[in-house]
Amino acid sequence: MTTSCAQTATPLQRPMRPEDVPAQTADTSAQTESAETSDENDPRYHVVASAPVSNWLEVQIELARRGFSSGSIDGVRGAQSAAAMKAFQRNNQLRETGDLDAATRQVLQLTDAVFTTHIFSAEEYAVLQPVAPTWLEKSQQTALAHASALEMLAERYHATPGLLRRLNPGIDWENILPGVEVQVPALGKFTTTLRPTLIHVRLADRVLQATDESGRIIVHFPVSIAKIVEKRPVGELQVVVVVPNPDYTFDPVNFPESAEGQELGRRLIIPPGPNNPVGVAWIGLNRPGYGIHGTPDPEKVGRTESHGCFRLANWDALALLSIAKVGMRVVVEP
């Protein structure tokens, strides 16, 4: 199909340390006491089920578990985190402030430990490979796999590389070897029993949502849209194909800015993988060349434009792929 456009889950028994939290995070007073406290009887060192979230890192992790993505998790209340919070508040008949206010604290409860431990494996190490710099060289690779352990784990746990560095200050990421234990956000594969009937893209807000018949939001994701206004397909569309792990057709016609493409003058098939231009999922629409897909650059989603398609972080594209069906309506509004 061509398109155009080993883990453990052992909860950590301590709170996040002050040096692990970005300076801009809000309301971290509950977790900023001395990092040297190590009393195992201290209740702060044990995750209590159904405890209210207490800071924006916990907000991002808990919302992601429920299908409300803030993009790459960094612990900072930015525009994408506020939009995810508003979607959650709408579902729960709360005032849509986008803030972690008192009413939201009562509803948004932690459902699991905030962090878990990932043991980097020999199998994961074996599949890492650099991404070639040119389109021709990319087409000759066996796969466009992750280039580094940091990139792999950041994508798997929906985090910015910077967050993983802060959570694991003792790791030499350039020379990481199998067997190293890494502290990561406690996130797994998204699942839901709800049945979406509509995918809704709001171009002005740069968000994509899937809703059920009653209008309840099942998933909420930040999305990149076409840079050129004329290439934004406003109106009603339909899903015509759902493809996991797609390859990609590089067509120089679509990349007039590429000197290499103009010199090649021919199409190339780019192999699948997370660093493929359309990431790990392709949801094709009934407009030739258009689809919803992943990306190798999750931190750019919602902040930079695409050539025409709707671009999601790979983890969000996979979540959408799991619930999208051929024939599903897609409504795009300005």
Rank of each mutant, 00 (worst) to 15 (best):
Q31L: 04
T32N: 15
T32Y: 04
T32R: 15
E33C: 02
E33V: 02
S34D: 03
A35E: 07
A35W: 06
A35Y: 01
A35G: 15
A35Q: 13
E36P: 01
E36L: 14
T37C: 01
T37Q: 15
T37I: 06
S38Q: 14
S38M: 09
S38D: 14
S38G: 05
D39Y: 04
D39N: 15
E40I: 11
E40V: 05
E40R: 12
E40L: 11
E40W: 09
N41S: 13
N41A: 07
N41D: 13
D42T: 02
D42H: 02
D42M: 02
P43D: 04
P43W: 06
P43M: 13
R44M: 04
R44Y: 06
R44A: 06
R44E: 05
Y45G: 11
H46G: 03
H46D: 04
H46Q: 11
H46T: 14
H46K: 07
H46E: 06
H46A: 11
V47Q: 01
V47H: 07
V47K: 00
V47W: 05
V48I: 12
V48K: 14
A49M: 15
S50A: 12
S50V: 00
S50R: 14
A51S: 14
A51F: 00
A51K: 13
A51L: 12
P52N: 06
P52Y: 05
V53N: 07
V53F: 04
S54W: 02
S54K: 12
S54D: 12
N55E: 06
N55Y: 11
W56R: 09
W56Y: 09
W56S: 04
L57E: 12
L57G: 06
L57M: 08
E58K: 09
E58A: 08
E58D: 08
E58P: 06
V59A: 07
V59I: 05
Q60D: 11
I61N: 10
E62N: 08
L63F: 02
L63E: 05
